[in-house]
């Protein structure tokens, strides 16, 4: 990909715009980034986006900041990462600076809270929509292990409030065991080509 001035500008404006609309932090930014970088700009593939989400989630710091670094790095290297981080932190920096000056007026404004309350429902719709399409992709692969991981992870996070880190570590271990088993199978059938799916 050509790293011209336009790419950098696009990276900055996209992340700035996305960050200005990620109310509530956390995973809310993922559907917005997916829409922009996977569907609109086609700079990142669907599966790659999920991988980047996994890295963002398992690294220290805010998911939104981490995801921006990854996307920027992917598109335009370290300079890209610097630009996307700047784009991501500027909206909250500006917004919070203004709001903390007028905090009491803001907190007690009924119209503001009505808008914010309703936006929660909008955010929920956006996240559920993206989960349905991502979940559909996984179920379509017809891998029983993937579907079991999906269900068990959901139950343990949502109902049992298990720390996300344990789930990620368990999945990494599962993946390594599976790779090990596959390799052993390959050693037994040395004349067969290695199957990397």
């Amino acid at each position: 990909m050509k790293h011209n001035f336009k790419t950098y500008i696009k990276l900055f404006t996209s992340t700035f715009y996305i960050s200005a609309f990620t109310f509530g932090g956390g995973f809310v930014i993922i559907p917005l980034m997916r829409k922009k970088f996977v569907e609109d700009l086609k700079w990142i593939e669907e599966e790659e986006m999920i991988d980047l989400t996994a890295i963002a989630q398992s690294s220290p710091g805010a998911i939104a900041v981490n995801a921006s670094i990854l996307v920027g790095y992917r598109v335009a290297g370290l300079l890209g990462a610097l630009i996307t981080v700047l784009g991501t932190i500027l909206p909250p920096l500006i917004c919070l600076s203004i709001i903390s000056m007028f905090y009491t007026a803001f907190k007690n404004n009924a119209i503001v809270s009505a808008a914010l309350k309703s936006m929660q429902a909008g955010v929920a719709a956006v996240i559920i929509d993206v989960v349905l399409s991502m979940g559909n992709d996984i179920i379509k692969q017809k891998s029983i292990l993937s579907i079991i991981i999906l269900i068990i992870s959901f139950i343990s996070v949502y109902f049992f409030k298990i720390n996300v880190i344990y789930i990620i570590i368990t999945c990494i271990i599962l993946g390594i065991i599976q790779a090990f088993l596959n390799n052993r199978k390959d050693d037994h059938n040395n004349d067969l080509p290695k199957n990397i799916s």
């Binding site: 995973f27 993922i30 599966e47 999920i50 991988d51 989400t53 996994a54 989630q57 996240i127 559920i128 993206v130 989960v131 991502m134 979940g135 996984i138 891998s143 292990l145 993937s146 579907i147 991981i149 999906l150 269900i151 992870s153 959901f154 996070v157 949502y158 996300v164 789930i167 990620i168 999945c171 990494i172 599962l174 993946g175 390594i176 599976q178 790779a179 596959n182 990397i196 799916s197």
Partner: peptide, 16 residues
């Protein structure tokens, strides 16, 4: 590849 493959459904579950 194998690690990422088993992480993906978990990440979708987390977002869900």
């Amino acid at each position: 590849q194998s690690v990422l493959k088993s992480l993906r459904p978990a990440i979708v579950a987390l977002i869900g």
